[in-house]
Amino acid sequence: MSTIKNKYIVVVLLSFFSIASFAQDAKNDLMLSMGYYNNNNLTHYLVAHAKTKIDGKFQMVPDITIKFYINNDSAATNLLGTAVTNDKGDAVLMMPPSAKTEWMKSVKHTFAIVSTATKLYDEAKGTVDVSKAKLKVDTTEDKKVIVTLLELKDTAWVPVKGVDLKVAIKRLDGDLNVNETATFTTDSTGSITAEFKRDSLPGDKEGNLTLIAKVEDNDIYGNLTAEKVVKWGSKFQYVSQFDRRTLFARRGHSPWWLELLAYTIVVSVWGVLIYLIGSIRKIKKLGV
């Protein structure tokens, strides 16, 4: 009897382990990647990206809590902060002021990210190496944009040769290249020169345009941008359309032609009707 009991226990335990192992198999691999961003040599932030592969297709993974560390060390003292991935699988962490001391210690840093394990995903890790660099934007009177990429070596900023960068004008929904060349490569002086060929591009009311230079997804420097405001655009004076007589205007501001046409028709037809009501009065008088 006890032998049969033991057999049952073994079967149940085996079933449990097999279910548990199936459950573990159901977990997907979480892939983490990270980017370093430096905007205008002022704002530093890190973006972690979480994705997974389901049915042979990559899918973004939201709601994953990610911890960000400096110096590739997941010690609590190196923790920069935590962020949760959004619908696009991105978690953004602005570099906190408390990290300044650590940041100033070295010209190169390795950032690490660690995701918190969930029911669907195990813990995952990722790192990125960053060398400190900055972009400098200068302009000449003949509308040329000179962008220089500098890297911090010990205590000096030195030019960097052979790096691809873009020079564009910031617009509302994206950036517009300053000319037909999409990408420029820095020379031995760490510079590129781009000719501004977007004349009569509308700027603000004083003709201001914002130039932007960008290094994107560079293996050594990450993502760098630098901006400069120039008065190279045409002046844009905002004229309110609110009181203009248009078909889409508010009440009492319809176009003159429409008012003339509509009121002429209404007055004419109702004039006829009033005349006919007058005829009834005349008929009435004749019958009295």
Partner: peptide, 24 residues
């Protein structure tokens, strides 16, 4: 319609009104 007396002037006015209405 108590004022209607079948007078030719009344018919004339009424017919004219009906014609105008028919056009309008």
């Amino acid at each position: 319609g108590s004022f209607w007396k079948d007078k030719p002037e009344q018919f004339s006015l009424s017919n004219k009104a009906i014609n105008i209405l028919s056009i309008t």
